[in-house]
Each structure stands twice: as structure tokens, then as C-alpha cells.
Design a protein around this nucleic acid. Structure first.
Lengths: 412, 412
DNA sequence: GACCTTTGTTGTTCGGGGCAACTTATCCGT
DNA sequence: ACGGATAAGTTGCCCCGAACAACAAAGGTC
């Protein structure tokens, strides 16, 4: 009995209301706590309109109002009546975020506002088949919802995968390091859980970029590139404030940019991809670590205080590869994620040298290099953000389709 | 006395009206002529709403209605009352488009709908200073408005430049082949014309991409890359239906992607950029043409029926470079503009071979290579589209600030 | 020619944001 | 301590735009 979904490029009043309600929630989601007066300023709407919108969010159980006396730290300033605050409800909607890696998986229950409420972790080493991994993930999911309030709605699941994911349906086309081809992992997980809720599967680098853009090093930056170094090398790109996807959703496969045609063959079939120069195996070799240990690269790198000449050369290669990326995308920020965040402090100068000699000055001027400010949780929190997105687009619809009484329903 | 510009992320009713009016106009602009019934279908709004919106466009003098009997070719089908048509008014708003190249400039008067109403062309060889070129362009502009109706409003000027253009203000940061640094060409042209109207300066490849997306080979394609081969090599990229700009507006400088570190030095200071392998000078050398003739490459290429071995090798290099671009952006379409459209028929197989061995299968599956369907006018029409954009966003405001009585005002 | 289908037109309804007046709550100066 | 200034919440009303329904118009179909 739900209203027919409108199509077409026109905007009607219902859509305006949806959009404004979602935008209010998005602001609260980003800022955590916010006064209605501040919302009025940021959205440019009338006070009374903001009051109506926040009231609706309250009746939906998403937010609650804080007394005007909340800010009591003695630093209030400016005359006038203090503004009522809006904050996220303790038993408000939440999502499940899954960060699937080559040999382990992390699952978290994440509320609106991006707070991790509960998390669980398990090794997946030795689990080759997707259904085995799916079962392990389902177990972790059951674990993280045990303490959830039964009145809090579960809005969806977000899953980060190291591979190429088709954006239309979340099919994993190819995850080389998991050795998966054409796996519908969302179906696998839902089957193991025995429920039906929206699942969003996406590439790990894209989600890392999303998280750093929303609540990490890239807040307020509308053009950024998140470089993911896990085993392979990939990138998540935000341009104009929106994720760059490409037709299929495979954009950002910068690990296979041509780097040195005289270099070694790459597992992709080509020769001299950037990944062969700066990928996990190359770095492992440069620091004398075993190739089987590629998944543990960050730990090994953190023990180093100085870079070997081999690692220094790789630093230069990182810089020269980044130069191509900066020329192509003209980002304001490059976030070095995965093991790159541990390589960066060791070879910062070499990276910059490589950059400077190969990037165009105009593009180089406006770019900054940094590491994720969310640490190792970028990708996990990005999966949460992706799963939360429908809620921020249309809160009413999303709450309507959410799952209630979750601990009991998943326990069965 | 104009209404204060609303800011903020909220949407109000006024904005809805603006958006819908602009969207109606955008549909007519794209389709040329359209029935109100068709508009109703495409926009998903009510018949009466469409009637009100089209009526407003009529009173603004932008469109006019065609009698229901317009379609008389005997191919009418379907029962029911025939729909009133909406078409662009003959004396409706128009823009000036300028395609500035290394040794010549083309200027056109372009109406809504993308029809070139008048055009002019002149060599700029020997004009080194920006003000000299600006004066030449102003002369061409005066020429193309001579026959314009004095009641038709001039909405703006769009200028395509082969260089890096800052998007915030249209400053030309660097145009290597014009040898310009930090030139505010919009000021130069406006000063030469003695009027003040909106001028949009942008990179030629970006505008070529825009035009092919709007009315060329990329209609309906939301992810495309337009490769521009003039003297240097650049790209204009559309992702998710929107131009990819980057912070400064310099995105798409793919001519300086790293291609072969053992290759020759590039004028940018780096070594082995893709441009050194497939740029104008390399192609001129491969077909035995003089280096001073780079601007005439297309003419020379069109006389060839067969590719030399050198040109074949360049074809492979084009393919291998495109592979990187396809991996990075995952486009649905790659449009080979500039001299590449003349190289393509000669070395199609070599390009495809290079592509196949270096691009990722998932990305390669969904991509098509083609040449501009607007021919040599892509960039010019893209400049027109860019200048028309404000009109399609807010018709009322744009008409309000437009210049009237243009032939007389520019003649002085 | 009767009936059906589709569209334009017109008047009305509905809903959402803007606005103004009033109330409430705090700061600040005397 | 007290009143004015300031800013924010609340309330009722208005305006505007899209939806809707009823009717008229124009053509197709049998």
C-alpha cells in the first residue's frame, strides 16, 4: 500500500520534503549534536520549517532533543535564548559494517553518527569458498547485535570487499586475492542470516574514500583520492563531493596503471603495472619479509625506523605513480591508506621527490598528502556510511523497511 | 530589487519551481521539439504543471507553441487528442561560442538547441600576446552577431582554450602551446567588446566531452572520456553525467600520465609522458610531416590510406595508454577527438590490441571506442553548452541578466 | 456515426515552506 | 537587581506549486 515511486526528472513537493528531512538528518549525522539554530543557518530554511523537520525525526525515533542547558561548560556566549539541541537517539537506527580482507574479517555495529557500538573480528584464513566466509561473517554479525536494543531498527548491511564489485547489484566480479569470480556475496550472507534487508557490497578503497571524506582526514574536501594498499593497490575517488564509480562501478583501478613497461609481469596479464612496483609483494621483498606475510605488512613496517635503499626506491615509485593520479584527477587531498600509511613516514621525502618531478605544477600546488585519520577503521566505517546512505536520503522509507527486534530475530 | 540569493543545503518551493522550469527547458534544448505530453512523461509531473511551466517559458520568449497539426507526415499513430508542441523560439536566447586553437580561432553564434546560427573563422598565427588574440576574437564575435535579431537576448560567452583553466574564475593558468601563463582571457575579450556579460572559459577537452555527451556520440552515456589530440593530449571526463573537474579544474591531464620512463623528456619537465609517445609531434614524425605542421595534422592524416609501421606502433601506444585511462575511470565510451579521430581508422586494430593486453577485462567489457559525431565542432559546441548552462539552471534569472539589442550594442 | 483514447484547460485541493507576531530565555549594562 | 537587547522556539496564517478531477477538444477505431 505504499505510494508509487515517482520517476522522471521533475521535482515535486513530496520530494522536497524527503530531501529536506534527509538533509537535516545528514547534518546531525555528520556533526553528532547540533542546535536547531545551527541547522537553520546551515540549511537556509526557516526556523519553523526546521522545527517541523526535527519534530518528525523525533517521532521516527531517530533523534531526540536535548535541553537547552546542555552546553554548560561556561563557554556560552552571545545573548538570546539558548537553542534546543538535536542529537541522535541512543536506540536509533544502526547498520552492520563488514570489512572483509584477505585473511580476516571485521564486523561492527555502527549507529548513526558513525559510532562503533560493538565489534567482532575473526580470521578467515583457510576458508576458500564464499559460503564458508559468508557463514563466518554471519556468525560475527550475530555476535555484534547481541547487545543491541530490540527497539532499535537495523537499516542495512555494508560490506567492503578487496575486489571489483558491480555497482548495479553488488556482484563481486573479481577479487583476485580471495580468488573469487562472480560471487553474489550479499545473497550468501543473507542466506546465512535468514533475513532479508538491504545489503550494499562495494570495493574497499571506495569505502575508505567515503569514510575519510565523511568523517576522516577529508572532511570538507570535495576532491580526494584514497589509495588502498592491502595486497593489491586500488583507489577510491571522490570528485565534486561524490564517489567516482564509472559505468560498472570499477573506476579507481589504479594498481594497473602503466608504470614501467620493462617491469615484471602482473597477475592481471599486463606488464609493468604500478602494482608490481609498489604492491604488497614488492614492499615485502624490499623489507625482507616473507611473501606469505603480505597481509601482516603494516605490523612489520611499524617496527622499522629507517628505510632500506630498496624501500627508498619504492618510495620514489610511489611518488611517480601518484603524480599520474594527481594529473588525472586533480585532487585536493591524497589519503595513503593500508600499508601505504606505514610506508609513508619512512620514505616521505622520496615520495615527494617522485611527485615533484612528475606532476604538473598547477595540480601539485593544490594537493596534500596525508594518512587516514580513522586509522585502520576507514574501510569499516566507509561500509557503515554506505549502508546508512539510504537512511539519509529518505529517512521515512528507510525506517519503514528496517528490521526490528534484531537480537531475537538473528538469534534463531 | 532582486530576491536575495538563498544559500544552504535546504530546498524550498522557489527552488523547486526554478529547477522544474530549467528542466523543462533542458528537455526542449536537448530534443529540439517536443510535445507537452512527452514532457509530462519524461518529467513525471502532472499535465497541468507542464502546461504552466511551458506557458512561463513562452512569456519569457524562449519557446513557442506549435499547432497540434505540426506532425503531418502521415505517421501519426495512437488515438487521442494530438498534443501541443513546444519548440524553441526563433528569436530566443543565444550564446557566443569560441574555439581558440593554437593557430586559429572559430567563433559561432549558437542558439538554444545547439544550432549554429552564424560562424566566423580567422587565423591567429603570429599573434603572440593575449590582447592581440582577444582583439581578433572580439572582431569575430562582432561578425557573428550582425544578423542576430535585436530582440534576441545574448546570455553569455563560452571560450574553449587548449590549456589548464582554473575553474573558479576561468583564469588560464598555463596554455603551453599558446605560451600563455596566468591570463584572464575573459577580461581581455570583455574589454575588447566593451560590454559585461557572463564569460565561461574552460579547457577544450572538457568542453568537447560536454558536447559529445549532450548532443554527440555520448548521448545517454553518463560515463565517458573524450580524448583531445591537438598539439598536446588531454581528456575531458564525464562521470555519473557530470564533468570531472578536480579542485582547481585541472582534472583530465592524461597527456602526462607516465607511459615509458625510458622515453624522451616531455616539455612538462618529466620523462616519458604518454604525450611524448602519441602527441602531435610524435605523429607528425611518424607520417613524415614537418613539425611546424602539427596544427594541420588532421588534413595530412586524411590523405593517408595506410599506416606506416611507425604509425602502427603509435597505434599500439594509444591503446596501451587508453588502457590505463579505462582502468582508472571505467567509462562506457571513449571518444577519440582531434587528430585521434583521423588516426583511429588507420590503426584501429593496433589500438584494440594495445587495449586488450593492458586493460582489465571487467572495465574493457563495458567500453566502446568511437570518434566524435559532431566532427570538428565538438569543442565549439561544448563552449556553447557551457555558456548556455546557467540558462538551463535558472531561465528567469539568466534571461534577466542577458544582453539585449546586441547587434547595435556591439557595433559601437 | 458511436465510442474510445488521449490531451489540453480550468478550478479546486493539498501540503510544505515563508513570514510575522508573540513568547521564552539568556546576556549585559546600569 | 532590574530592564533592555538579543536570539530562539511556537503558533497561526499566507503563498505558491504540484496533484487531482471534471470537462472539453481532437483524433482514431469499429
Amino acid at each position: 500500500m505504499q505510494a508509487p515511486r515517482r520517476v522522471g526528472t521533475g521535482t515535486n513537493q513530496e520530494a522536497v520534503r524527503r530531501h529536506n528531512l534527509g538533509t537535516v538528518l545528514r547534518h546531525v549525522h555528520r556533526a553528532g549534536q547540533l542546535s536547531r539554530a545551527e541547522l537553520t543557518r546551515r540549511m537556509g530554511l526557516n526556523r519553523s520549517t526546521i522545527a517541523a523537520l526535527t519534530a518528525e525525526l523525533e517521532t521516527l525515533g531517530i533523534t531526540e532533543r536535548t535541553g537547552p542547558a546542555t552546553v554548560s561548560a561556561g563557554e556560552r556566549q552571545g545573548a538570546g535564548r539558548p537553542s534546543t539541541g538535536v542529537r541522535l537517539a541512543a536506540t536509533g537506527p544502526y547498520v552492520i559494517a563488514v570489512d572483509l580482507r584477505v585473511d580476516h574479517a571485521t564486523v561492527a555495529r555502527v549507529g548513526l553518527g558513525g559510532a562503533i557500538q560493538q565489534r567482532a573480528h575473526a580470521s578467515t584464513a583457510g576458508l576458500a569458498e564464499a559460503w564458508q566466509v559468508g557463514a563466518a561473517v554471519a556468525t560475527l554479525i550475530r555476535k555484534v547485535v547481541t547487545d543491541a536494543s530490540s527497539s532499535a531498527p537495523l537499516v542495512g548491511i555494508g560490506i567492503a570487499v578487496p575486489g571489483m564489485v558491480r555497482r548495479t547489484d553488488g556482484l563481486i566480479r573479481l577479487a583476485p586475492n580471495l580468488e573469487w569470480h562472480d560471487v553474489s556475496f550479499s545473497s550468501v550472507v543473507l542466506a546465512a542470516l535468514g533475513v532479508d534487508i538491504p545489503v550494499m557490497v562495494a570495493n574497499d578503497a571506495n569505502l575508505g574514500a567515503l569514510a575519510e571524506h565523511e568523517r576522516g582526514a577529508g572532511v570538507g574536501v570535495d576532491d580526494l583520492v584514497y589509495i588502498s594498499g592491502q595486497v593489491g593497490v586500488g583507489a577510491g575517488i571522490i570528485t565534486g563531493g561524490h564517489p567516482l564509480e564509472g559505468v560498472g562501478g570499477y573506476a579507481g583501478e589504479i594498481g594497473h596503471l602503466r608504470f614501467d613497461p620493462t617491469g615484471p609481469p602482473c597477475h592481471c596479464g599486463s606488464t609493468g603495472c604500478w602494482e608490481t612496483a609498489v604492491g604488497g609483494p614488492a614492499i615485502a621483498a624490499a623489507i625482507g619479509s616473507a611473501l606469505e606475510d603480505v597481509a601482516q605488512l603494516p605490523q612489520h613496517l611499524r617496527q622499522l625506523t629507517e628505510a632500506s635503499p630498496e624501500l627508498r626506491r619504492i618510495g620514489g615509485d610511489i611518488g611517480r605513480g601518484l603524480a599520474s593520479i594527481i594529473n588525472a584527477f586533480n585532487p585536493q587531498l591524497v589519503v595513503l591508506g593500508g600499508y601505504f600509511s606505514d610506508v609513508h613516514p619512512l620514505v616521505r621525502d622520496e615520495i615527494l621527490d617522485g611527485l615533484t618531478c612528475a606532476a604538473l605544477p598547477a595540480a601539485l600546488d593544490s594537493v596534500t598528502l596525508t594518512v587516514p585519520s580513522l586509522g585502520d577503521d576507514s574501510v569499516l566505517l566507509g561500509a557503515a556510511e554506505a549502508a546508512l546512505d539510504p537512511l539519509l536520503v529518505d529517512p521515512v522509507a528507510s525506517i519503514g523497511t528496517a528490521l526490528l527486534d534484531v537480537p531475537a530475530r538473528l538469534a534463531g
